[in-house]
Computed example of a mutant assay.
Amino acid sequence: MPRWRQAAGKRPSARPLRSIETTDESTGCFLWRDGQRTDVIDYRLPTSEDDIRPVSEIALAELAGIIRDNQEALDENDPALIIARLIGLDRLAATSRSRIEDAIEYWRRVQTGGGPRREEERGTA
């Protein structure tokens, strides 16, 4: 019998899954390590052109992080376009614009203490 099999026994018991937190957003569900979810997190800058993520794959809390760090963009004529450029988008499609505008609204609610809307609230799985 292989050594690993002896150590685990004939029927190793399933280890309980670690608790995770989720946010259900308009673009899908985002998973967070237990205790790591906050209303705003630092935006992870792409390290190369190949590392640029679609806006739909960035959680609102992370988009709020880049807005927090670049609040002067909110005073411009087209803040969504400026945020899009900051995250590396060359073209701002309507769906990306909508997502960034949602993130700006989210940031304003968090900043004023209003917190996330119901569909953005934390959950646990």
Rank of each mutant, 00 (worst) to 15 (best):
Y106W: 08
D50E: 10
S26D: 13
N70W: 04
A125P: 09
G28H: 04
R97M: 09
G115D: 00
R99D: 01
S56K: 02
N77S: 15
V40I: 13
I83G: 08
S96E: 12
A94L: 09
A93G: 01
G114T: 04
V40W: 05
I83M: 14
L92S: 03
C29M: 15
R109M: 06
V110L: 06
I20S: 14
D51P: 09
L92W: 14
D50F: 13
A7S: 01
Q111C: 08
I20C: 13
R99I: 00
D90Q: 08
L17D: 02
K10V: 00
L31K: 02
R18H: 11
I58W: 03
I83E: 13
E120L: 07
L60G: 11
A93P: 07
W32N: 03
E49C: 09
D24C: 09
Y43L: 09
A84G: 08
T27A: 11
E105V: 11
T112Y: 06
D42S: 06
A94Q: 12
R53D: 03
D51H: 08
Q71Y: 13
D24E: 00
V40S: 05
G114K: 05
S13I: 02
R44Q: 13
Q111F: 04
R118N: 14
S98W: 09
V55F: 12
R122H: 06
I104T: 04
V40M: 05
L89P: 01
P16C: 08
P12Q: 00
A73R: 01
E72W: 09
